[in-house]
Design a binder for these strands. Structure first.
Length: 355
DNA sequence: AATCCGGGGAC
DNA sequence: GTCCCAGGATT
């Protein structure tokens, strides 16, 4: 990327227009009620790859349940995951709690206000570090997210592929040069708010843009073609037989997922990799893996669930327990107790087939 | 540098 | 269907 991007750029004029627009037009959001570093932190984690409107109710409930670092640090991880249920990227919740526990044990419960300590906490990367330092502590640190890259690639007419890590990193020194020393919080949030409300991915509202006069892409009529971003590859399909496995009339069998990887530590109905398997082979696979003898019965429906890099194709079957070992990975619970466990959305959809 | 990690909403 | 969202961790 060229290093003379800002040579003939009116940084002060850009700052003034952006901050004035932000102050006049910013949305009333729950995490903007004050600058409590804990609230800023939680909101920034929830907002990773997640829209504002999705986050709002989760943030409200999370703050009622875990109002400060001590309440979150001492909580049961399953309760934290339950509060995160449906929000996705569940490692965010587990990393957040792990980092909060470190803040309690190593920093006397006070969230660090320097980038060295903050950046070492689990789940806090370059963006979140800069967001907390600028918003909660008024430090002129860059916070480069997707909005900021889109806005600045247009304003400065940057044509590098923003999907590349090295290109992303190059936005940080640029923001460091552009950021307001007087109000870094409003500057960073202003860039993001502008990206969300005006400088949108498609059909940006340039006629209402407070920094239109500074925008090189608008000058060239190029705003619709920026930023440049290579496409992600398509997710792979994986087929499963998913079981509504009953034990008697009231009990249903569920299973806790592994500690690592996809949907870690969430609960699910038992799933059998079904590629090339007959129903009978699925029963045998299940007995070999769990030691439970089962009988698969009626086909109850099918579900397709799309992840970022994966597609689950679930064939849902009712099934009955013929024999259960005394000790098992599987758990037998009353149907009315299912709501106490954190389930991924795909398996919440499965619950509709229960009767 | 590439891959993994959710879910939803706008179009 | 496509895109992408206040990204980070792992390999």
């Amino acid at each position: 990327m060229k290093d003379d991007l800002l040579n003939h750029f009116n940084i002060q004029g850009f700052q003034e227009n952006l901050i004035a627009w932000y102050q006049a037009n910013k949305r009333n959001l729950p995490w903007r009620e004050n600058q409590d570093p804990y609230r800023v932190w939680v909101s920034e984690i929830m907002l990773q790859q997640t829209k504002v409107d999705t986050v709002i109710p989760y943030f409200q409930r999370f703050m009622e349940k875990f109002p400060d670092v001590y309440r979150l640090a001492s909580a049961d991880e399953q309760d934290v995951l339950k509060a995160w249920e449906g929000l996705g990227y569940y490692s965010r919740a587990r990393n957040l709690q792990s980092a909060v526990r470190e803040v309690v044990s190593e920093y006397d419960g006070k969230i660090p206000d320097n980038k060295e300590a903050l950046g070492k906490l689990k789940g806090i990367g370059p963006y979140t570090k800069g967001a907390i330092l600028s918003i909660a502590f008024q430090q002129p640190e860059p916070a480069v997210d997707g909005n900021v890259m889109r806005v600045l690639s247009r304003v400065l007419h940057i044509t590098d592929n923003i999907a590349e890590a090295k290109v992303k990193k190059q936005f940080e020194p640029i923001v460091t040069k552009m950021i307001s020393k007087e109000d870094p919080s409003s500057f960073n949030q202003g860039l993001m708010e502008l990206g969300a409300m005006v400088c949108t991915p498609k059909s940006p509202l340039c006629l209402f843009c407070p920094v239109q006069e500074y925008c090189r892409a608008f000058l060239k009529g190029d705003q619709e073609n920026l930023p440049i971003k290579s496409k992600a590859k398509k997710p792979k399909k994986v087929a499963y037989i998913a079981l509504l496995l009953k034990q008697g009339k009231e009990k249903i069998i569920i299973e806790k997922r592994k500690e690592q990887g996809l949907l870690a530590n969430l609960w699910q109905f038992p799933m059998i990799p079904s590629k090339g398997k007959t129903v009978h082979e699925a029963e045998e696979w299940f007995e070999a893996k769990y030691g439970w003898a089962i009988q698969i019965g009626k086909h109850a429906g099918k579900l397709k669930h799309v992840f970022t890099h994966l597609i689950w194709e679930l064939e849902i079957y009712e099934a009955d327990v013929l024999y259960a070992p005394k000790k098992s990975k599987l758990k037998s619970v009353n149907i009315h107790e299912l709501s106490q466990y954190p389930f991924p959305v795909s398996h919440q959809k499965m619950m509709k087939y229960l009767h």
